[in-house]
């Protein structure tokens, strides 16, 4: 005999009870879901907040040409306030350039050594030490720039001041190096060993294997590592504030002091009345920074995605 279909749907199978395990599972799911989307909520929240604070100024008062093309940042001038970021952008760019010139050769070299040459214990130790380097707080780096690099640069290059593009570039390069190294190492490790074996079987030396096969295969990962390093150097505040000299000039040489976009916000925001033009102009710089780092990280992410889809 069979149960009619409409009746069967109302029946409850024996043993179909929502017990404790079922509720714990549901609870666990909801909790993980909240944790999972919290990052998205925070990012959106920050985005909205920064835009809200800066939007009034951007929409009604901001002279775009002045903002991007004038080097004069005089937010507190009583006669004529001006909000030009060109000097800061140039300063930040110069420091980032120097930092990459310092960081990239070292980081890629270290990554090649760890991924291709180091074995066993050496490799593990190196990775731990490099991670340790990444954990040094930025204010400590700033301190090193201020107290060690500053007199060193004055002595070696015989310049009047050691807080300049060179100093902050080196400090930022050392700060970005661990991140670039570990991402570059991942890129090298993602190259299948079969590639190395195939090249070695053709009689390629270790260097030829790396240069002709591993580097081309890992180039997207390396590019993305470099971009993330750029993002790190661009967005760093405290160390740059301490090591750059904080002087509003367009740098003509690596021995000129500069002022970074980030450092300007950090140094001035506490001194401005909430809601004033100056306050809002600082938020406009924040939006500008946010957009640039967003673009850099997005590009890096797209490149990494490109590797996976290959």
């Amino acid at each position: 005999m069979s149960i009619p279909l409409e009746k069967a749907s109302t029946l409850v199978a024996a043993g179909d009870v929502r017990n404790r395990d079922w509720y714990i599972d549901k609870l666990f799911h909801s909790f993980m879901f909240i944790c999972g989307i919290s990052a998205v909520i925070f990012v959106l929240g920050i985005f909205v907040f920064v835009f809200k604070e800066g939007s009034g100024f951007i929409i009604h008062q901001l002279d775009w040409a002045e903002f991007f093309l004038s080097p004069k940042w005089r937010p507190t001038s009583a006669i004529q306030a001006s909000y030009g970021t060109l000097a800061m952008v140039a300063g930040t760019a110069a420091v980032t350039l120097i930092s990459m010139a310092v960081a990239l050769p070292f980081s890629f070299g270290a990554a090649i050594f760890i991924a291709e040459f180091a074995r066993g214990k050496t490799r593990e130790w190196l990775k731990v030490v490099i991670e340790l380097l990444a954990a040094i707080p930025s204010v400590v780096w700033g301190f090193i720039g201020l107290m060690i690099m500053n007199p060193l640069i004055i002595d070696i290059f015989d310049v009047p001041i050691g807080l300049n593009v060179l100093n902050s570039g080196i400090i930022l390069g050392l700060m970005a190096a661990p991140i670039i190294t570990s991402i570059a190492e991942d890129a090298f490790k993602a190259v299948p060993d079969t590639y190395r074996e195939a090249a070695e079987a053709l009689g390629a030396t270790k260097w030829q294997v790396i240069y002709k096969v591993v580097l081309p295969a890992a180039k997207n990962g390396l590019l993305s590592a470099a971009l993330l390093g750029v993002g790190r150097a661009f967005g760093e505040t405290m160390a740059v504030l301490m090591a750059s000299g904080h002087a509003l000039t367009i740098p003509g040489s690596v021995f000129d002091s500069i002022r970074a976009l980030t450092a300007t916000i950090a140094a001035e925001l506490g001194e401005t009345p909430v809601g004033s033009d100056h306050y809002q102009a600082l938020f406009a710089i924040g939006i500008f920074l946010f957009s640039i780092t967003f673009i850099i990280n997005m590009t890096a992410d797209l490149i990494v995605r490109g590797i996976k889809n290959q």
């Binding site: 079969t194 590639y195 074996e197 195939a198 009689g203 081309p216 295969a217 290959q310």
Partner: peptide, 17 residues
Amino acid sequence: LRSKIGVVFPLPVGLPL
């Protein structure tokens, strides 16, 4: 020595070139 001995592996290895 290796350049005098060609090797073909079980799974094809087309290098990403």
